[in-house]
Design a protein around this nucleic acid. Structure first.
Lengths: 165, 165
DNA sequence: CAATATAATGAATTATATTCTACACTAACG
DNA sequence: CGTTAGTGTAGAATATAATTCATTATATTG
């Protein structure tokens, strides 16, 4: 439980808002946008990275372009004790598994998997999932169409915070 | 149904592999890594963007740093006809809703929502979800802990494709 | 108010992005 | 065969940007 100090001001929020939308925006552009010097932006970003406010920069690739058209959610019931994450880690180690969430209620996990097609999903379950002994049962939900898929956070707006008037 | 030509070669894959992990890698670094000229990399990346192989560059921000510690999945049953996405689009328009998937089986949607806490979730459901008349019912699953949360795709390795020997 | 810490500016330097030309390779075609 | 597009890369030149650093501001604290 290493709690860090995340004291962010409006400038940080503004930077995060710009970078969340476009990770490849230049420091110079951010600086222009915010009316600051590029060197100041650089310092800010470095600190945001150090403090782990910014976790990583990712390129979102079109799954269709790589022939990965199938998305599924799988509920997995496991024999883990409470707080035990062995099964979760084993699942997380599978590359096709994009998300693993320990969920309340069913002593189980919700897992998001992306594969080429249903055959690849079946194969994945037979080859990879079946090798995790603590898995008791699975229930698979197929995604027909994805309407939205983002990880964008809602960043508070404190632009006009007017601490005096 | 606008199908595009996604013909990608090993160089494209190599670029995508590097950029998927670090969207802010410089073209110069990619060029060094692949033993090519930076201008060639630039050309490739431009084309990948044009052809919508690369969709966007995103900065992943630590949700905890923004006080958004609650993650939930909500199953939503809707009165949409088959193929109708009105409800889905209404859901997608809510900023706290990160994902909306039309799922098979239950004429419903699976929605991923990130909020500050359970109070904010309740508020969101009362204020935003309740305003979508086509929603018949909801079932909420709370995430206790997230073990993995990525959108990284598995990029095929064709490095040594040896078309002759 | 002085002392300390924090953060921004602006100039200088280094590195990168971008543009453009020339050249190599390929496939299609007369 | 040789020609012609078409495509993609290298490499030089130029425009931008990143980075460093000394200096100047801005807060914070005792």
């Amino acid at each position: 439980m290493n709690k860090i100090d995340y004291s962010l001001d409006q400038t940080d929020y503004a930077i995060l808002r710009l970078m969340q939308e476009n990770a490849r925006i230049s420091n110079a552009d951010i600086a222009r946008e915010l009316g600051m010097a590029p060197s100041a932006i650089l310092e800010r970003i470095k600190k945001l990275e150090q403090r782990e406010v910014i976790l990583q920069y990712r390129t979102k690739i079109n799954p269709v372009a790589l022939g990965q058209t199938m998305l599924s959610f799988i509920f997995i019931r496991a024999a883990d004790g409470i707080g035990c994450v062995t099964t979760g880690q084993a699942l997380a180690a599978i590359p096709e598994v994009q998300e693993v969430h320990d969920i309340a209620g069913d002593d189980g996990y919700l897992v998001k998997v992306r594969t080429a097609d249903s055959a690849a999903l079946v194969e994945l379950m037979r080859n990879s999932f079946a090798k995790i002994p603590s898995i008791i049962s699975t229930r698979t939900t197929i995604v027909l169409e994805t309407v939205k898929e983002e990880q964008q956070l809602v960043i508070p707006e404190l632009e006009e915070q007017g601490r005096k008037e």
